[in-house]
Amino acid sequence: MMIKTTLLGLSAAAALAAPALAEYPERAIELTIPAGAGGGTDTSARKLAILLEEKLGTSIAILNVGGGGGSVGASQFMQANADGYSLFATWNSPLTTVPQVQNVAYSLDSFTPIASTSQTAYTLCVKSDFPATTGEEFLAELEANPGKYTYGNDGIGGTMQLAAERVFQAKGIEALAIPFGGAGETLQNFLGGHVDIYGGSISTVLPYVENGEAKCPLVTSASGVPALPGASGLEVLGLGDKETLLWRAILGPKGLDQAIVDKLADMIDEAVNDPTYVEFLATKGEVPNVVKGEDLGKRLQGEYDALAEVSKNLGL
């Protein structure tokens, strides 16, 4: 009798949940971006939001909360209600890198993974007269000259520095990391001759590769990338397990209902693979990459653990 009553209760709950999901969303959704307007994550999220509005049948309001390498926005988002009307559009660094070097109020468990959206490699680039062109030649040059070369990156303990050091530590390379306030500032100092190597996102340096002022011998992905056909991926160098990517994702607050997670993940998948979005990503040197729910959670944890080891080795 008790079993029958329990089954009836579960059936009733399912019946109530189904119409609620069918009606979701009933009002506007707020999308928090932990960065200022105009950056890579912001422009990508805004473009995606336009497509999601059409698919979900509701408006999406953008809230930019920059600061602390994304940690300010992430901390603020923790206060959001887990009702499906507050979402978080971020890149991986605030979740897997920043906590290695800053005391933050959140952890990976503070969020509900919904779906990743796109990804790209970081790249290491040099001036056109640098005495190496291929990835193998580039690493050999650095290895033969410990402490000689400087590389700009996105800040002490930033994802770019940890991505580079995963490779350098594996090869016993000593290069001096010079922190800047992002890829744009790194590029300016690289072009001005203040650092020997640009370390950062592909889209920022791409115009200078196309005009011949710079060349990029290495990307931090296992395989090469179409935007930089001359750059070696890590796999051909025997370093495929040292891959570090810049990737973006949509998350929800902790405790978000799984039915809403699944619906949003499917809608995000459709939007990301819309031809107009794929074309948009290509202009930024990015490609679609959708990893959903639990698998996204595993990706976050795996990257966090790998970067924690590198950070520990650096004494950060």
Rank of each mutant, 00 (worst) to 15 (best):
I114R: 05
A144K: 15
T150A: 00
E136H: 03
A115Y: 13
Q119C: 07
T112P: 08
T112K: 13
S110I: 12
F130V: 06
E137A: 15
C125F: 14
V101I: 13
F111C: 10
S116Q: 12
F130I: 07
Y122K: 09
Y106A: 04
F138V: 02
L142I: 08
L162G: 04
T117W: 02
I114E: 10
I114P: 05
K148F: 01
I156W: 03
T120R: 15
N145S: 04
T150F: 04
A163H: 10
A140S: 09
T133Q: 15
F111P: 07
A105P: 11
Q161A: 02
T120C: 11
T120E: 15
T123I: 15
Y122N: 04
E143S: 12
A140M: 04
N153R: 07
D129S: 11
G158T: 05
T159Y: 00
I156T: 14
Y122P: 00
L162T: 05
Q119G: 12
M160Q: 14
G158H: 01
T123F: 06
P113R: 09
V104R: 14
T123M: 03
Y106W: 05
T112I: 13
T150N: 14
E141Y: 00
G152S: 02
S128D: 14
P113H: 11
S128Q: 13
T112G: 09
G135T: 05
S118C: 11
